[in-house]
Computed example of a mutant assay.
Amino acid sequence: MTKRPWWKRILLGAAWVSLAVLGGTAAVVLLFRFVPVPTSALMIERRIGALVEGRPYEVRHAWVPLERIAPSMGAAVIAAEDQNFPDHFGFDWQAIEKALEHNEHSRRKRGASTLSQQTAKNLFLWERRSWVRKGFEAYLTLMLELGWSKRRILEVYLNSVEFGDGVFGVEAASRRFFGKPARALGPSEAALLAAVLPNPRKYRADAPSAYVRARQEWILNQMRNLGGGQVVKALG
């Protein structure tokens, strides 16, 4: 039997590895369509970082279904992070174009990641930005949009996003900062939580700066423009 050249063996091995990765990713995405997501890549990365630094670190996280989260919380993150979430297929090209134009003329960079992209990153990828990560993020975002409903994407996002040091998901954040379950959050509290999302390790819901308060008011106005909690109830 003729032996394949070494370069063909490498290409064949790479093809099998790629197929295994694609198949494994599809299986995980399909599984998480139906079952609660117990942890995320971001939670694991935070734990490892604390271990390397030699400091104690506690993760506060509790999964709750979307029905047990106040609709105002979903409305708040849509208003703050991705107002075209109900209509796009993972990517908001208009927002991306505006961000690119802004970043050409400003030192303060603006992102354009949708809730779908953020969910993919939080669950599966590392935090540091790179073109490699963006490539994986784009692929995983498409997988989520193809395999999950918009309601499921929002549900997983709200249960995995970081709201403070060691605080992940809206149930843990609501109990940590307001002493109540997520289903009891009011619009003002939901807007305050959403206001820290650009940098939850810098901005604090329990000690909001003037910037956070101003952002909270802006989010509340945007929530009203979007119809409040109705934007969540209308998701397919």
Rank of each mutant, 00 (worst) to 15 (best):
G236I: 13
N122R: 07
P5K: 02
I153C: 08
P200D: 07
S72P: 00
K202S: 13
R201G: 11
K150R: 14
A99V: 04
V212N: 11
E145N: 09
I48K: 09
V156H: 04
R4W: 14
A184L: 09
L51G: 14
N199I: 03
E127V: 13
P56K: 11
N84K: 13
L154S: 01
A190V: 00
R215N: 12
A191D: 08
V64C: 03
V59I: 15
A138E: 05
F178T: 03
V29N: 00
A173D: 07
D87H: 11
E97M: 02
E81K: 01
R110P: 02
M73K: 06
S40Y: 07
R128I: 07
F163K: 04
E162I: 03
V167K: 00
Q216D: 07
G229I: 06
D87P: 00
M73L: 04
W6N: 11
V35S: 00
G24C: 03
P65F: 04
R128D: 10
F85G: 13
E145V: 08
D87S: 12
A172Y: 00
Y203H: 10
A20P: 14
D82V: 05
G229Q: 05
D82K: 01
S160C: 10
V196M: 09
E67C: 09
D87G: 08
P36S: 07
L142D: 10
S174T: 02
D82T: 05
R204S: 09
A20Y: 11
W16L: 15
K134Y: 07
E97C: 07
S116V: 00
N225L: 15
T114I: 06
L42V: 00
A50R: 10
G164D: 06
G186M: 02
R47L: 15
Y211F: 14
A210R: 13
D87Y: 12
E127R: 14
R215A: 10
G227M: 07
L22Y: 08
K180R: 13
I96H: 12
A182F: 01
S130F: 01
P36M: 04
N221R: 15
A172T: 00
N103M: 09
S40V: 03
R176W: 12
R176C: 06
P56Q: 05
L22S: 12
S149L: 12
G227Y: 10
F178K: 03
A182P: 06
E145T: 05
G166P: 01
S72I: 05
E189W: 02
M223L: 08
